[in-house]
Simulated assay, not measured.
Amino acid sequence: MDLYINAIAHYIPEARVPNSYFKDVNGLDDEWIFSRTGIKTRSKAGEGENTNTMALEAVARLKDKLPFAIEDTDLVVAATYSPHDTVATAAHAIQRAYTTRAAKCLSVSSACSSFINAIEIVQGYFAMGKATKAIVVASEHNTEYCNESCPQSGHLWGDGAIAIAISTSPEGEKAAKILDIFTRGLGHIGKADTAVYLRPRHGGIGMPEGRDVFINACHYMIEGLQVVTESNGKTLADLKYIAPHQANKRIMATIARQIDFPEDRILSNIGEVGNTGCPSCGIALSQNLDRVERGDLVGLTVFGGGYSCGAVLLEFI
Protein backbone atom coordinates (compact mmCIF):
# COMPACT_ATOMS: atom_id res chain seq x y z
CA MET A 1 0.00 0.00 0.00
CA ASP A 2 1.34 3.41 -1.00
CA LEU A 3 1.32 6.28 1.50
CA TYR A 4 1.43 9.97 0.67
CA ILE A 5 1.95 13.11 2.67
CA ASN A 6 -0.78 15.40 1.35
CA ALA A 7 0.00 18.55 3.31
CA ILE A 8 2.53 19.99 5.76
CA ALA A 9 2.23 22.94 8.15
CA HIS A 10 4.13 24.19 11.18
CA TYR A 11 3.76 26.57 14.08
CA ILE A 12 6.55 28.39 15.89
CA PRO A 13 5.84 30.83 18.72
CA GLU A 14 6.75 34.45 18.02
CA ALA A 15 8.97 35.05 21.06
CA ARG A 16 12.75 34.63 20.70
CA VAL A 17 15.28 34.33 23.51
CA PRO A 18 18.76 35.59 22.49
CA ASN A 19 22.01 34.04 23.63
CA SER A 20 22.76 37.16 25.68
CA TYR A 21 19.95 36.16 28.07
CA PHE A 22 22.00 33.24 29.38
CA LYS A 23 25.05 35.21 30.47
CA ASP A 24 23.46 35.98 33.83
CA VAL A 25 21.52 32.70 33.98
CA ASN A 26 24.14 30.02 33.41
CA GLY A 27 27.29 32.03 32.72
CA LEU A 28 27.53 31.27 28.99
CA ASP A 29 28.04 34.10 26.51
CA ASP A 30 26.84 34.49 22.93
CA GLU A 31 30.10 33.46 21.27
CA TRP A 32 30.48 30.30 23.39
CA ILE A 33 26.91 29.15 22.72
CA PHE A 34 26.96 29.91 19.00
CA SER A 35 30.34 28.32 18.33
CA ARG A 36 29.29 25.05 19.96
CA THR A 37 25.63 24.80 18.91
CA GLY A 38 24.94 27.16 16.02
CA ILE A 39 22.13 28.74 18.05
CA LYS A 40 21.65 32.52 18.11
CA THR A 41 18.07 32.64 19.41
CA ARG A 42 15.46 30.08 20.43
CA SER A 43 11.65 30.11 20.19
CA LYS A 44 9.60 30.31 23.37
CA ALA A 45 5.91 29.60 23.85
CA GLY A 46 3.94 32.55 25.14
CA GLU A 47 1.65 32.83 28.13
CA GLY A 48 -1.23 30.39 27.77
CA GLU A 49 0.56 28.32 25.13
CA ASN A 50 1.48 24.70 25.69
CA THR A 51 2.16 21.48 23.79
CA ASN A 52 -1.52 21.01 22.95
CA THR A 53 -2.22 24.59 21.87
CA MET A 54 0.82 24.59 19.57
CA ALA A 55 -0.32 21.27 18.07
CA LEU A 56 -3.76 22.75 17.48
CA GLU A 57 -2.27 25.81 15.82
CA ALA A 58 -0.20 23.66 13.47
CA VAL A 59 -3.32 21.68 12.53
CA ALA A 60 -5.28 24.91 11.98
CA ARG A 61 -2.64 25.92 9.43
CA LEU A 62 -2.80 22.44 7.89
CA LYS A 63 -6.60 22.41 7.57
CA ASP A 64 -6.88 24.63 4.50
CA LYS A 65 -4.28 22.55 2.65
CA LEU A 66 -6.06 19.23 3.12
CA PRO A 67 -7.44 17.38 0.07
CA PHE A 68 -10.09 15.82 2.31
CA ALA A 69 -12.49 17.15 4.94
CA ILE A 70 -10.72 17.24 8.28
CA GLU A 71 -13.81 15.70 9.88
CA ASP A 72 -13.13 12.56 7.83
CA THR A 73 -9.79 11.99 9.57
CA ASP A 74 -9.87 8.48 11.05
CA LEU A 75 -6.50 8.47 12.82
CA VAL A 76 -4.70 11.15 14.85
CA VAL A 77 -1.24 10.39 16.18
CA ALA A 78 0.52 12.92 18.40
CA ALA A 79 4.24 12.81 19.13
CA THR A 80 5.92 14.49 22.09
CA TYR A 81 8.17 13.93 25.09
CA SER A 82 7.03 17.18 26.74
CA PRO A 83 3.25 16.71 27.09
CA HIS A 84 0.88 19.28 28.50
CA ASP A 85 -1.31 16.45 29.75
CA THR A 86 -0.54 12.74 29.56
CA VAL A 87 -4.23 11.81 29.74
CA ALA A 88 -6.02 14.25 27.43
CA THR A 89 -3.24 14.18 24.81
CA ALA A 90 -2.69 16.53 21.89
CA ALA A 91 -4.34 13.92 19.66
CA HIS A 92 -7.51 14.05 21.73
CA ALA A 93 -7.42 17.86 21.75
CA ILE A 94 -7.36 17.77 17.94
CA GLN A 95 -10.25 15.31 17.82
CA ARG A 96 -12.30 17.57 20.09
CA ALA A 97 -11.48 20.75 18.16
CA TYR A 98 -12.39 19.27 14.77
CA THR A 99 -15.04 16.71 15.77
CA THR A 100 -13.26 13.82 14.10
CA ARG A 101 -15.75 11.41 15.65
CA ALA A 102 -14.44 8.24 13.97
CA ALA A 103 -10.77 8.89 14.64
CA LYS A 104 -8.53 6.68 16.69
CA CYS A 105 -6.34 8.92 18.87
CA LEU A 106 -3.03 8.14 20.52
CA SER A 107 0.24 9.70 21.59
CA VAL A 108 3.74 8.31 21.14
CA SER A 109 7.00 9.19 22.89
CA SER A 110 10.45 8.11 21.80
CA ALA A 111 12.43 11.28 22.56
CA CYS A 112 13.47 13.23 19.47
CA SER A 113 12.62 10.39 17.10
CA SER A 114 8.95 10.47 18.13
CA PHE A 115 7.74 12.20 14.95
CA ILE A 116 9.20 9.46 12.74
CA ASN A 117 7.78 6.78 15.04
CA ALA A 118 4.35 8.41 14.70
CA ILE A 119 4.56 8.23 10.90
CA GLU A 120 5.46 4.56 11.15
CA ILE A 121 2.44 3.94 13.39
CA VAL A 122 0.24 5.42 10.67
CA GLN A 123 1.85 3.02 8.19
CA GLY A 124 0.86 0.14 10.46
CA TYR A 125 -2.77 1.25 10.87
CA PHE A 126 -3.10 1.71 7.12
CA ALA A 127 -1.59 -1.71 6.43
CA MET A 128 -4.12 -3.31 8.79
CA GLY A 129 -6.97 -1.56 7.01
CA LYS A 130 -7.94 0.33 10.16
CA ALA A 131 -7.40 3.86 8.81
CA THR A 132 -7.13 5.73 5.49
CA LYS A 133 -6.81 9.41 6.42
CA ALA A 134 -4.43 10.43 9.19
CA ILE A 135 -3.05 13.52 10.84
CA VAL A 136 0.32 13.31 12.55
CA VAL A 137 1.27 16.17 14.83
CA ALA A 138 4.50 16.61 16.76
CA SER A 139 4.76 19.33 19.38
CA GLU A 140 7.28 20.19 22.08
CA HIS A 141 7.11 22.71 24.91
CA ASN A 142 10.74 22.36 25.88
CA THR A 143 10.91 25.69 27.69
CA GLU A 144 8.25 24.48 30.12
CA TYR A 145 10.59 21.77 31.34
CA CYS A 146 14.11 23.05 30.76
CA ASN A 147 16.42 24.18 33.54
CA GLU A 148 17.85 27.40 32.12
CA SER A 149 20.55 27.56 34.78
CA CYS A 150 22.11 24.29 33.57
CA PRO A 151 25.33 25.17 31.69
CA GLN A 152 25.24 21.85 29.81
CA SER A 153 21.89 22.17 28.11
CA GLY A 154 19.76 24.98 29.57
CA HIS A 155 20.44 27.17 26.54
CA LEU A 156 19.50 24.64 23.83
CA TRP A 157 15.74 24.40 23.85
CA GLY A 158 13.03 25.94 21.70
CA ASP A 159 9.31 25.32 21.21
CA GLY A 160 7.24 24.47 18.13
CA ALA A 161 4.97 22.05 16.31
CA ILE A 162 4.57 20.31 12.95
CA ALA A 163 1.46 18.74 11.43
CA ILE A 164 1.16 16.52 8.36
CA ALA A 165 -1.72 14.78 6.63
CA ILE A 166 -1.24 11.25 5.30
CA SER A 167 -3.52 9.24 3.01
CA THR A 168 -3.30 6.54 0.35
CA SER A 169 -3.94 9.05 -2.47
CA PRO A 170 -1.34 11.33 -4.12
CA GLU A 171 -3.33 14.49 -3.55
CA GLY A 172 -2.36 17.92 -2.34
CA GLU A 173 -0.61 21.02 -3.64
CA LYS A 174 2.83 19.55 -2.91
CA ALA A 175 2.32 15.86 -2.16
CA ALA A 176 5.14 13.47 -1.31
CA LYS A 177 5.20 9.70 -1.58
CA ILE A 178 6.59 7.97 1.51
CA LEU A 179 9.07 5.55 -0.05
CA ASP A 180 10.35 4.09 3.21
CA ILE A 181 10.29 4.51 6.99
CA PHE A 182 12.94 3.19 9.36
CA THR A 183 13.06 3.33 13.16
CA ARG A 184 15.24 1.63 15.69
CA GLY A 185 15.58 1.56 19.47
CA LEU A 186 19.13 2.03 20.72
CA GLY A 187 18.69 1.78 24.46
CA HIS A 188 21.51 -0.78 24.66
CA ILE A 189 24.34 1.43 23.36
CA GLY A 190 26.67 4.00 24.89
CA LYS A 191 25.26 6.07 27.76
CA ALA A 192 21.69 5.84 26.53
CA ASP A 193 20.20 5.49 30.01
CA THR A 194 21.77 8.67 31.40
CA ALA A 195 22.65 10.89 28.41
CA VAL A 196 19.36 12.81 28.24
CA TYR A 197 16.51 12.97 30.74
CA LEU A 198 13.31 14.83 31.52
CA ARG A 199 12.29 14.71 35.18
CA PRO A 200 9.70 17.44 35.80
CA ARG A 201 10.24 17.57 39.57
CA HIS A 202 13.91 16.64 39.59
CA GLY A 203 15.87 18.93 37.30
CA GLY A 204 13.70 19.20 34.18
CA ILE A 205 15.40 18.46 30.84
CA GLY A 206 19.09 17.65 31.14
CA MET A 207 21.80 16.41 28.80
CA PRO A 208 24.81 15.51 30.94
CA GLU A 209 26.46 13.30 28.30
CA GLY A 210 26.57 15.62 25.31
CA ARG A 211 29.66 14.03 23.79
CA ASP A 212 28.10 10.57 23.77
CA VAL A 213 24.97 12.01 22.16
CA PHE A 214 27.06 13.78 19.53
CA ILE A 215 29.05 10.70 18.53
CA ASN A 216 26.06 8.39 18.31
CA ALA A 217 23.79 10.93 16.62
CA CYS A 218 26.27 11.42 13.79
CA HIS A 219 26.60 7.67 13.28
CA TYR A 220 22.97 6.60 13.48
CA MET A 221 21.45 9.54 11.61
CA ILE A 222 23.64 8.56 8.67
CA GLU A 223 22.78 4.88 9.13
CA GLY A 224 19.07 5.66 9.00
CA LEU A 225 19.46 7.55 5.72
CA GLN A 226 21.49 4.69 4.27
CA VAL A 227 18.79 2.16 5.17
CA VAL A 228 15.92 4.06 3.52
CA THR A 229 17.88 4.98 0.39
CA GLU A 230 19.48 1.60 -0.22
CA SER A 231 16.16 -0.20 0.24
CA ASN A 232 14.87 1.83 -2.71
CA GLY A 233 17.91 1.36 -4.94
CA LYS A 234 19.16 4.87 -4.20
CA THR A 235 22.29 6.37 -2.68
CA LEU A 236 22.76 9.34 -0.39
CA ALA A 237 24.01 11.29 -3.40
CA ASP A 238 20.52 10.95 -4.93
CA LEU A 239 19.01 13.04 -2.12
CA LYS A 240 18.22 16.63 -3.03
CA TYR A 241 17.78 17.70 0.59
CA ILE A 242 18.23 16.27 4.07
CA ALA A 243 16.05 17.55 6.92
CA PRO A 244 17.75 16.33 10.10
CA HIS A 245 16.84 16.61 13.75
CA GLN A 246 17.99 20.09 14.80
CA ALA A 247 20.03 19.14 17.85
CA ASN A 248 23.30 20.89 17.08
CA LYS A 249 24.69 22.69 14.04
CA ARG A 250 27.99 20.82 14.41
CA ILE A 251 26.19 17.47 14.19
CA MET A 252 24.62 18.54 10.91
CA ALA A 253 27.95 19.81 9.59
CA THR A 254 29.67 16.58 10.60
CA ILE A 255 27.04 14.48 8.84
CA ALA A 256 27.40 16.57 5.68
CA ARG A 257 31.17 16.16 5.76
CA GLN A 258 31.10 12.42 6.45
CA ILE A 259 28.77 11.65 3.54
CA ASP A 260 30.20 14.36 1.25
CA PHE A 261 26.84 16.13 1.02
CA PRO A 262 26.53 19.88 0.28
CA GLU A 263 25.91 21.63 3.58
CA ASP A 264 23.63 24.17 1.92
CA ARG A 265 21.23 21.31 1.15
CA ILE A 266 21.01 20.34 4.82
CA LEU A 267 17.78 22.08 5.87
CA SER A 268 18.36 23.88 9.15
CA ASN A 269 16.62 26.36 11.44
CA ILE A 270 18.51 25.78 14.69
CA GLY A 271 20.15 29.20 14.53
CA GLU A 272 16.80 30.93 14.99
CA VAL A 273 14.63 28.53 17.00
CA GLY A 274 17.07 26.25 18.84
CA ASN A 275 16.43 22.56 19.42
CA THR A 276 12.66 22.15 19.06
CA GLY A 277 12.80 18.42 19.77
CA CYS A 278 10.91 15.82 17.77
CA PRO A 279 9.10 18.30 15.45
CA SER A 280 12.39 19.89 14.40
CA CYS A 281 13.09 17.91 11.22
CA GLY A 282 9.51 18.42 10.05
CA ILE A 283 9.55 22.12 10.85
CA ALA A 284 12.79 22.53 8.90
CA LEU A 285 11.21 20.81 5.89
CA SER A 286 8.00 22.83 6.17
CA GLN A 287 9.94 26.10 6.26
CA ASN A 288 11.82 25.12 3.10
CA LEU A 289 9.02 23.58 1.02
CA ASP A 290 9.36 26.35 -1.56
CA ARG A 291 12.83 24.98 -2.38
CA VAL A 292 11.54 21.47 -3.02
CA GLU A 293 10.53 20.57 -6.58
CA ARG A 294 8.68 17.70 -8.21
CA GLY A 295 10.87 14.61 -8.38
CA ASP A 296 13.12 15.64 -5.49
CA LEU A 297 14.11 12.99 -2.98
CA VAL A 298 14.21 14.29 0.59
CA GLY A 299 15.49 12.39 3.60
CA LEU A 300 14.39 13.05 7.18
CA THR A 301 16.71 11.65 9.80
CA VAL A 302 16.59 11.81 13.59
CA PHE A 303 18.28 10.69 16.77
CA GLY A 304 16.72 10.76 20.20
CA GLY A 305 17.81 10.41 23.79
CA GLY A 306 17.18 7.06 25.31
CA TYR A 307 18.51 6.24 22.58
CA SER A 308 16.53 5.88 19.32
CA CYS A 309 16.87 6.78 15.66
CA GLY A 310 14.76 6.93 12.53
CA ALA A 311 14.58 8.10 8.94
CA VAL A 312 12.02 8.67 6.21
CA LEU A 313 12.58 8.86 2.45
CA LEU A 314 10.17 11.11 0.55
CA GLU A 315 9.71 11.61 -3.18
CA PHE A 316 7.81 14.79 -4.07
CA ILE A 317 5.39 14.33 -6.94
Rank of each mutant, 00 (worst) to 15 (best):
P151S: 14
P151Y: 11
S153H: 12
G154C: 05
G154F: 11
G154D: 02
L156V: 06
W157M: 03
W157P: 01
W157C: 05
G160E: 01
I162G: 05
A163Y: 01
I164M: 12
I164L: 15
I164W: 07
A165S: 13
I166A: 11
I166Q: 05
S167W: 03
S167H: 02
T168V: 07
T168K: 15
S169D: 11
P170Y: 08
P170S: 14
E171A: 13
G172P: 04
G172Q: 09
E173H: 13
K174N: 12
K174E: 06
A175K: 11
A176N: 02
L179W: 06
I181W: 01
I181C: 06
I181P: 00
F182P: 10
F182C: 08
F182T: 06
T183K: 02
T183V: 06
R184F: 00
L186Q: 03
L186C: 06
L186S: 04
G187W: 08
G187V: 05
H188F: 03
I189P: 11
I189N: 13
A192R: 02
A192I: 06
D193R: 14
T194W: 06
A195R: 09
V196Y: 05
Y197G: 05
Y197K: 08
Y197T: 07
L198W: 00
L198Q: 00
L198Y: 01
L198K: 04
L198G: 00
R199I: 13
R199H: 11
P200Y: 15
R201P: 00
R201Q: 09
G203W: 03
G203F: 08
G203Y: 06
I205H: 04
I205P: 08
G206W: 05
G206E: 13
M207I: 12
M207L: 13
P208N: 09
P208D: 12
P208Q: 11
P208I: 14
E209T: 10
E209I: 09
E209A: 13
G210N: 13
R211H: 09
D212T: 03
V213D: 12
V213F: 09
I215M: 06
I215K: 08
I215T: 09
N216E: 10
A217H: 08
C218T: 15
C218Y: 00
